[in-house]
Each structure stands twice: as C-alpha cells, then as structure tokens.
Amino acid sequence: MANDLDETTGPINHEGRDINVINKQIPVQIGTGSLIFEIALWTVGTIPGIISLATGARPQLHSIGFIVAGVLPGLIFLFMKINALAYLRKLQQKIQADASQIDNYLEQRVVILNNVVGLVAKAIDLDKDVMKSVAAYRSGQGGSSDAQRNAAAQQIDGIFSRIGIACESYPDLKAQAVIADAMRQNSYLQKEITAARTLYNDTVSIWNQDVFAWPAKQIVAARAGFTTRIPFTASAETKAAARGTFF
C-alpha cells in the first residue's frame, strides 16, 4: 500500500507555506461519559454485594467482602485524581518558572542594549556616514542576490575597518572595546533566550497534552477550569525582519 503522503511523487507546494501559532486557549471539557465512568467505579462492584447482603443470598461476611472490594476501584481512582491535580499544579509552576527565566534574560539584554546605545551615541560623531551605511546594510538594502550579498559583505568589512582606524585615532576613547564586549554579551543572552523559549514551549506542549489525558488528568483539568496554553510566538515584525536578513 502506498503512503498517503509521498514526498517523491505527491503534489509539491513550490510556493511554501507560512506557519502561524493559533492564538486560542482551548478549555478542557468532559461529557456525561466521564461522569458515568466515575459512578460505575463506585457502584458496579458494590451493588451485587449490597443486594446479596439485603437478600441473604450469600453469607454476611462474603457480602461485606464484595462491598469492600467493589469500593476499591473508586478509591483507587480518587487517589489517581489527587495525584493528577498535584502533578498539574506542579507543571503550572514549572511553566511560570520557565517564563520567568525568559524575562530575566530579556531584562539583562535590555540593560546591555541601553548601555550600547549610550556608548554608540558617544562614538557616532566619529563618522555618521559610516554608521548610516552599516544600518543600511543590516536592514537588507545591500541586495538579495549572491553577488550583491558578497559585495555588501566586502563593503561592510571595509566600513568596520574604517571604524577601527577612526577609533585608533583617539587613544582615550575606549568605547569600541566596551561595545564589542557588550555585543558579545548580547549575542550570548540571545542564545540563552532562544534556549529558554524552547524549554518554555516544551513545557507548554507537555501541559497541552496532559490536560487531555483521559481519564484522571482530563477530568481533574476540566473540573479545575484549566485550558491549553499558547506557546511562544514570534511577532509579525520579527518574522518580517527575519525574512529580510541575509547574513
């Protein structure tokens, strides 16, 4: 039997497809089937014992034994629900901790970027045209073809050489070293933010699956009013900037 999706012979989407995260939280719900299931756990085993005890069809100890044995499934499921609630609350706390970690890295990055802005403002008078050129190339105005990219890369290398020469002309100006260090820190923090967001999304994915894990977790989640959570999504501006970046 052939595969339903065959990447070698099937129709191909040459234009590509932009994937977006749906900004919607789905409430966890249960139907009457779950209620019947819970009632059955308590009654299916106990009803025969109760009838036997009431009619005297079996010895009294046997009937009581049937009743006790019939209650066990309900008690076991009750403990399962208690454990499920504790697990989901613990997972909630982990989601909060993961989100807080992202905020910590973002705050550090904002501090560093504010410092860089102040340092660049002091050095920008060295050659305003240089900084304008760098900004232009970084915003993608250098072109999109391979040849244009190579030409832009060479010109940017030349621009940075001019910045270095200009800074060397001012021995007291140490901003260039501080800026370089700040940019290294910024790059490191950006990687940490990416990793933290991945961890956050992984935890959210676990939550979104577990709240629908029937019976115990889904029943508990529904009665607690839990919903699915939305994973981290890049803004429209970030996506547009990513498409425009060529190096």
Rank of each mutant, 00 (worst) to 15 (best):
Q190K: 07
M131F: 15
W214V: 11
E107H: 13
S169M: 02
I179Y: 03
N115G: 14
M80D: 09
S169K: 10
A241E: 13
P11K: 08
F246W: 08
R17W: 14
K24S: 08
A236R: 04
I159C: 03
I95Q: 03
N13L: 10
I26N: 10
H14C: 02
A222H: 09
R149Y: 08
I26W: 10
G118C: 12
G70H: 07
A241V: 05
L173K: 04
W42I: 03
Q92C: 00
Q154S: 14
G45K: 07
D6V: 14
Q190I: 07
W214C: 08
Q25D: 07
I206E: 12
W207T: 06
A180W: 04
L78A: 02
A213C: 03
E15S: 11
Y170A: 04
P48H: 08
R149C: 02
N115M: 08
Q101A: 05
L189K: 06
D157M: 03
R138E: 15
F246L: 06
K217F: 09
S34C: 02
E7Y: 10
I36V: 14
D6N: 14
R89E: 07
A234C: 01
F77S: 06
T198I: 14
Q176E: 10
I39V: 11
S235I: 05
K132D: 11
A153R: 07
F232P: 00
A242P: 00
A97R: 00
A136L: 09
F77I: 03
H14I: 08
T198V: 12
A99F: 09
V134P: 04
I51R: 01
Q25M: 09
V117A: 14
Y137V: 02
N83E: 04
E237P: 01
V117T: 13
I47C: 08
G74C: 05
I19Y: 08
Q96C: 02
I206N: 10
Y170V: 07
V71Y: 07
V110R: 15
P48S: 13
E107W: 07
I206G: 04
R162G: 00
K132W: 00
I112K: 12
I124R: 03
R17F: 11
G65N: 12
F37D: 13
T198M: 13
I50L: 15
I102L: 08
W42V: 05
Q60P: 00
N23S: 11
L199R: 09
A180Q: 11
G158Y: 02
S235P: 03
V116S: 13
P48V: 11
L91T: 10
A195T: 13
R58F: 04
A196R: 01
V21Q: 09
Q93K: 01
F79R: 02
G74E: 05
I50P: 00
L173H: 01
